[in-house]
Design a protein around this nucleic acid. Sequence first.
DNA 1: CCTTTGCTGTGAAAAGTTTGACACCCGTCA
DNA 2: TGACGGGTGTCAAACTTTTCACAGCAAAGG
Lengths: 217, 217
Amino acid sequence: MKRTKSSVIPSSVVRRLTEYLAYAQTFGNENGDQWVSSREIAQALGLTSSTVRQDLSHIDFCGISKRGYHVKGLRAVLEDTLGANSVWRVAVVGAGNLGMAIAQNDEFRERGFHIIGVFDKDAAKVGRSVGPLKVQHVSAMPDFVSGEGIDIGIVAVPAAAAQGVADLLIASGVRGILNLSLSHIITPRRVQVVEARLTCSLLELSHRIKYARKENK
Amino acid sequence: MKRTKSSVIPSSVVRRLTEYLAYAQTFGNENGDQWVSSREIAQALGLTSSTVRQDLSHIDFCGISKRGYHVKGLRAVLEDTLGANSVWRVAVVGAGNLGMAIAQNDEFRERGFHIIGVFDKDAAKVGRSVGPLKVQHVSAMPDFVSGEGIDIGIVAVPAAAAQGVADLLIASGVRGILNLSLSHIITPRRVQVVEARLTCSLLELSHRIKYARKENK
DNA sequence: CCTTTGCTGTGAAAAGTTTGACACCCGTCA
DNA sequence: TGACGGGTGTCAAACTTTTCACAGCAAAGG
Ligand SMILES: NC(=O)c1ccc[n+]([C@@H]2O[C@H](COP(=O)([O-])OP(=O)(O)OC[C@H]3O[C@@H](n4cnc5c(N)ncnc54)[C@H](O)[C@@H]3O)[C@@H](O)[C@H]2O)c1
Ligand SMILES: NC(=O)c1ccc[n+]([C@@H]2O[C@H](COP(=O)([O-])OP(=O)(O)OC[C@H]3O[C@@H](n4cnc5c(N)ncnc54)[C@H](O)[C@@H]3O)[C@@H](O)[C@H]2O)c1
């Protein structure tokens, strides 16, 4: 009921909020008012209901007794908290397999991440179509990024080139970077980075499999 | 010096171990003995040296004073701990943009994840080549998975189909699943899951950007 | 109207994670 | 050879995150 904890949300909580939002979005847009309890959310996402309630206590939204949370309202508040209701202008650097897959996926646009530039250094790739866009040469990237007011750069080049590309993006005024390459990149404090490494996720999985085997003897 | 803490490694540590391994692998294979200190690792990955030493105390490997850790040895032990020195047999379900990008990437094979089957339900995609493989119809997947002894399934289908595909994989004997779709999937305890959601990473980033702006006034 | 019931928000305890501090170790250099 | 300096492994303190327990609210049903 107090609902003004605000200030700063711990990052472990933010990570789960993104999942709550993904979950809330699965309900679709029909108008019928739908309600969901912390227990249901917890079950769907493999958490405890207590964690869910505690997490939601960080955002400015009340559930109501006996019913739970109003899905549409919850979704709206989460979108606001996470910045998913703004339009983010995004550029992808690296038009390889992964970069092209990302640029072609509609899911991002639906969630407010508008990819409006794709760049590569390989002349053979420059000029290829990606939906309504064309791959541009990476040398055009700095002007494009500052001219178009790009907010977020997605780095999808080989590890060895990642820091260089990131530095260019930063110098051109990007405010955040999603790094998909294997190498960690370093940024000034004002530029946020999130790293997403499929290879590391697979290694985590292989460790868990190996260990689980022992557990079950 | 004691070095037999073993038993169970906390998952927060495991996640970082995967990054240490990625880092150690960047040194390449030349024979010249190379050494790295906890401070260097920390700096490269944005951690504190204390965390690095604490983490490495979980694996069966000693650094030595004044030099640090022997890169080759460290790498070997990490590969062993994480199961990156075994060969994992992997199938990808969903031959869309993302599935094909993954199947075509060599990085996984280099790290022991051998993709030996790619499946889709769309007849138009069945038969396409992916390196030395051909996309097969998803109805062939269960027999293939059990027949070929697939360990890991990668789920790259739309969210709505994810749980169904996962159930099939589980019933066919897979031991772990990497889920790339937006929806959380549920598995019996013996089957490990790791979820990797690009959309959620982007949302995390957008939250951080939004919040950082406030921080710097 | 009152009672029951199911679910919320919250404060505090428990568990887990990160950081700091320091003894000790091993090459290096005088 | 001995003292130094830059590194390690480890213990404990500080901090963060998760879980527990429960008061209190809102709907439903007598
Ligand atoms: N494909 C995947 O499934 C996958 C999975 C996990 C991680 N990754 C990572 O994503 C990155 C890209 O993977 P990919 O499969 O798309 O590789 P890719 O080789 O298909 O594509 C890399 C692209 O980057 C371009 N490039 C290289 N240096 C560049 C530079 N300095 N500036 C601009 N462009 C440059 C290349 O021309 C190429 O087109 C890699 O770091 C890889 O580790 C890929
Ligand atoms: N492309 C990306 O960059 C990206 C990023 C993040 C997440 N994802 C997620 O990855 C998944 C796939 O993305 P995509 O871009 O490759 O989409 P896509 O539409 O290109 O591919 C999906 C493929 O799955 C196949 N499919 C659907 N149902 C199936 C079933 N029951 N069995 C077997 N195959 C089935 C479809 O025929 C299609 O080929 C989605 O869940 C998406 O959310 C993709």
